[in-house]
Write a protein that binds this DNA or RNA. Structure first.
Length: 271
DNA sequence: CTTGAGCGG
């Protein structure tokens, strides 16, 4: 049945129009964002996801919804991997809402230091499609820390990977892997950096903020509230997650180090 | 010692 489909190669039952765009440069504006995608076809809706309306801090990804499915498909073909500033954007279909996409990102410890990204992927590839992966390196030495991330397409795949790989000693390693769902607090960091300290007090000492008002009088309730989140009654049960909110990174400032092997001449530069 | 970014309205 060779018919119709005049100028576009839309897969058979493809009706999706909504795309997610990843790896947007932090400085990309909404207008620029729109301009990149509107060349493909009329857009119904698009938006860069931002941390807060207040800070305007971009999460580095956004959505583009076209009016026509063929334009969405075309955008993936034409704009995926497009160099934008110092990055290459990723263009792919957004997932239908309510899908099983919630806990697909895994945090892995005790990865043999000798492992490459490919090896890491190979280690987990049998459980499903890996959509993203990363190996963390020491900030100062640049040496592998033995921890990394693997993001699966589906939650069920991530779950299977945990069951299958957690506790397993990989080849070339001596310690069993620790595989668990990664915490998704990346988005909150921007808020903290922006000075959005709602009411979070890190009770762990040695922290950064030193409040000069340390007037603890015995019996004064109001003041003590800061250092006493809970009444001491129930301290026995369960484990208390201390404070993972300690962010000691400089938000902006590092000039790079990720990706980038490609110097990119693309197209003929306009003026 | 959970990543400059992978799912909103």
């Amino acid at each position: 049945e060779s018919s119709s489909s005049p100028s576009s190669a839309l897969p058979d039952g493809e009706t999706r129009t909504n795309l997610i765009i990843n790896y947007l440069p932090q400085t990309l504006t909404d207008q620029e964002f729109y301009k990149i995608f509107v060349v493909v076809g009329p857009i119904k809706n698009c938006r860069i996801m931002k941390d807060l309306k207040q800070t305007g801090y971009s999460f580095g990804f956004g959505f583009v919804e076209y009016q026509k499915p063929e334009d969405a498909a075309k955008a993936i073909l034409q704009l995926n991997n497009l160099p934008v500033q110092h990055k290459r954007i990723k263009v792919s279909y957004a997932r239908p809402p309510g899908e099983d996409i919630k806990e697909t990102n895994l945090y892995i410890q005790n990865i043999p230091r000798s492992y490459t990204l490919d090896q890491l992927e190979e280690l987990f590839s049998s459980y499903g499609q890996i959509v993203q992966k990363n190996l963390l390196k020491d900030k100062v030495t640049g040496l592998p820390r033995g921890v990394g991330f693997v993001r699966f397409d589906k939650k069920s795949q991530a779950e299977a990977a945990i069951v299958g790989m957690n506790g397993v000693v990989p080849e070339g390693g001596t310690e069993p892997l620790v595989v668990k769902v990664a915490e998704e607090h990346g988005k909150m960091k921007a808020a903290y950096y922006a000075g959005y300290h709602a009411g979070l007090s890190t009770t762990r000492g040695g922290g950064g903020v030193v409040s000069s008002q340390v007037v603890l009088s015995r019996g004064v309730e109001g003041d003590a509230s800061a250092t006493r989140p809970q009444p001491p009654r129930k301290q026995q049960g369960g484990k208390i997650a201390p404070d993972r909110t300690a962010n000691r990174y400089n938000p902006i400032g590092s000039g790079g180090g990720y990706g980038g092997g490609y110097g990119g001449g693309y197209g003929s530069g306009g003026s």
